[in-house]
């Protein structure tokens, strides 16, 4: 059923990662992603994988849950790995058949790439697992607030994002309901060619748009009734404060980055 699609995969908890400031988490995730692309050999990559493992343990997100969030990217992962496997021409040839050449360098690169993507995705997943969508958008808003100086409507953008996230489950439920209603009137959504199927979507899309607009109006009125006038002078119920925890995290990340540079430097080769 369409309802089972997981969007916004926040898992409530009280771990170290859950309690961290969203801004710090976002910055650290970005730093991690950049750092992982700076890794030049298996030693520095190993350090990053180790860091990712430690973070997973700290977050107390079950491994199974994390693995499931990797499923959608499994194809990309496999694709990059295979591409790297056969397109690397350098190194000692191990096996050759028609246009396919397998070299030891190819195997290294394929594994390297796969591990890189895997840790990248799992760390980003950790961010969404341990941060509520609201905290996430609040954090982004705070981080982008310097852009206000060049007249970027940061608050409106963040509000739009929060609302969009908020309404995804509502709209999914709505689609579900409309689909059932039209199926009850004999709508056939599963058979037929492309054009037929696209046409069959109309009875679902039109009511969906109508109700989305209706909800938008209702929400806009409700916000105006509460005197919403944009971000100016607006305070927050949940103030973001950085604590010792965040300081520790930043220090660890700095150390991690330094570690990568050192490892890159001392082990110049891929392995």
């Amino acid at each position: 059923m369409i309802r089972d699609v997981a969007i916004g995969q926040y898992l409530p908890g009280h771990s170290f990662l859950h309690k961290m400031d969203a801004r710090v988490k976002i910055v650290c995730t970005l730093a991690f992603i950049i750092a992982i692309f700076l890794c030049k050999n298996f030693w520095s990559l190993g350090l990053m994988v180790f860091a990712a493992l430690v973070m997973t343990l700290l977050s107390r997100v079950p491994f199974g849950q994390l693995l499931r969030s990797l499923r959608p990217v499994a194809f990309i992962l496999l694709f990059t790995a295979i591409l790297n496997l056969f397109y690397t021409k350098a190194g000692n040839v191990l096996w050759h058949w028609k246009i396919f050449t397998l070299t030891d360098r190819g195997i290294y690169t394929a594994v390297f790439m796969a591990v890189r993507i895997l840790s990248l995705i799992s760390v980003s997943a950790l961010l969404t697992f341990t941060t509520t969508p609201t905290a996430l958008t609040d954090g982004i808003e705070k981080l982008l607030s310097p852009l206000k100086l060049v007249k970027v409507p940061v608050h409106s953008l963040a509000m739009m994002m929060t609302l969009a996230l908020r309404f995804i489950p509502t709209l999914i439920e709505e689609i579900d309901r409309i689909m059932s209603a039209q199926k009850a009137r004999g709508a056939d959504l599963e058979t037929g060619g492309f054009i037929r199927r696209a046409k069959a979507l109309l009875p679902i899309l039109i009511p969906l748009f109508v109700s989305a607009f209706r909800r938008a109006y209702d929400l806009a009125y409700a916000m105006e009734c509460r005197c919403y006038r944009g971000g100016e002078g607006r305070t927050r119920m949940k103030q973001m404060r950085m604590g010792v925890r965040d300081g520790v995290a930043i220090a660890l990340f700095a150390a991690l980055t330094a570690g990568i540079f050192l490892l890159n430097h001392f082990f110049a080769h891929l392995i």
């Binding site: 209603a181 009850a184 004999g186 039109i206 009511p207 109508v210 109700s211």
Partner: peptide, 15 residues
């Protein structure tokens, strides 16, 4: 077709 089901708030299915 033999069992007609009319959902709650059926007006939201008009299109």
């Amino acid at each position: 077709f033999r069992v007609g089901l009319c959902f709650q708030y059926p007006e939201y299915q008009l299109f």
